[in-house]
């Protein structure tokens, strides 16, 4: 297992280097930020001065090299706009996005797996059909529209829940500001989390249902019934353990994408997370923030995938064997 983790870490470093190069070149190609950043009335000397200060007078390889040197020391550059380190700017916003993403994933898992199991066990029942019809809606309605509808119904018409912001935050462990520790925070979290969860919920329902339907046809289920096991044990242990393998993989991948692409929901609900920061930074061509953001997201994906692989081998004994041989 240790060898596996070391090997994966080395691979991850290679991925990060490749990714940073791609992003750097890509962002460089988008446009020159100086036209946006500097006051149009500024004269030529001021302009030259600003360009030199931001390091934009150097060639692309030079800029990349100095970025990499900085990154190796944990410095991902300073924001052009805010003049603060890009990394701390992003980390400041990260708890908000993380909280939103995790809340959405928890909703999707806690509802999705039982509903999917139900639909898989009783595909012909009214409840089973209703769950599947609902999941199609969850798939096909665009996130921003559902977000607006949620605000219309629950904030504007019913006035039950606030429509924007995080509300008051409480510091978890004294450093991480979170909303879910206070009732008011919960009220702020509810709508965006539901909005973000809907698509993942639909995905998990369909995945669980398909897995359950397939597993139920397997001989081991018939054998388990022939052994006289209770239905609860057959479903809860024999079926669930088998379908959990693909589900864990998808949950891992989706968790990454929920964190990285919570942008739409964050925009609709004015949630002060990383996604909103990224959109603002792209608008202002704030290169260091964009690059730092993407690198952080890549790192997140790498970590999540590593965790998924470890979980995977815990769930499926057949994977364990091939790993020890390799």
């Amino acid at each position: 297992m240790l060898a596996f983790i070391i090997r994966r870490s080395l691979q991850s470093v290679a991925v990060l280097v490749a990714m940073s190069l791609l992003v750097f070149v890509g962002v460089y190609a988008v446009g020159n930020p100086i036209d946006i950043l500097i006051n149009p009335q500024a004269d030529q000397i001021e302009r030259e001065h600003a360009i030199a200060a931001l390091g934009l007078d150097r060639s692309l390889p030079e800029q990349y090299l100095s970025f990499v040197t900085g990154a190796a020391h944990g410095d991902l550059g300073r924001s052009f706009v805010h003049s603060t380190p890009a990394l701390s700017l992003i980390l400041e916003r990260m708890p908000a996005t993380m909280e939103l993403a995790l809340a959405a994933m928890v909703i999707a898992i806690v509802l999705g797996i039982p509903l999917g199991l139900w639909a898989g066990l009783k595909p012909r029942s009214i409840a089973g059909r209703a769950i599947m019809a609902g999941s199609i809606l969850g798939f096909s309605l665009p996130t921003f529209w559902v977000g607006l509808m949620l605000i219309m119904v629950f904030s504007v018409m019913l006035g039950w829940l606030p429509s924007s912001g995080r509300g008051p935050t409480v510091d978890l462990f004294g450093v991480i500001p979170v909303s879910f520790l206070s009732l008011e925070g919960w009220r702020h979290l509810a709508l965006p989390a539901i909005n973000l969860a809907l698509f993942k919920l639909a995905l998990l329902i369909r995945l669980t249902r398909a897995g359950a339907r397939e597993a139920l046809l397997q001989d081991y289920v018939k054998f388990a019934r022939a052994k006289g096991l209770t239905n609860a044990r057959i479903i809860g242990v024999h079926v669930l353990r088998n379908i959990l393998i693909p589900i864990v993989t998808v949950i891992g991948l989706e968790l990454g994408s929920v964190i990285a692409f919570a942008i739409v929901t964050e925009s609709v609900f004015a949630w002060p997370g990383m996604g909103k920061l990224l959109i603002d930074s792209i608008g202002l061509l704030d290169r260091p923030v964009i690059v730092a953001y993407l690198l952080i997201i890549v790192t997140l994906f790498i970590i999540i995938n590593l965790v998924v692989d470890i979980l995977y081998s815990a769930l499926d004994p057949r994977v364990r064997v091939t790993e020890s041989k390799g």
Binding site: D219, F223, H238, I245
Partner: peptide
């Protein structure tokens, strides 16, 4: 009851 295909009757993950 004992089934036909022993490769399929035991649950692979237990």
């Amino acid at each position: 009851m004992i089934f036909q295909d022993p490769m399929m009757t035991l649950n692979p993950v237990l």
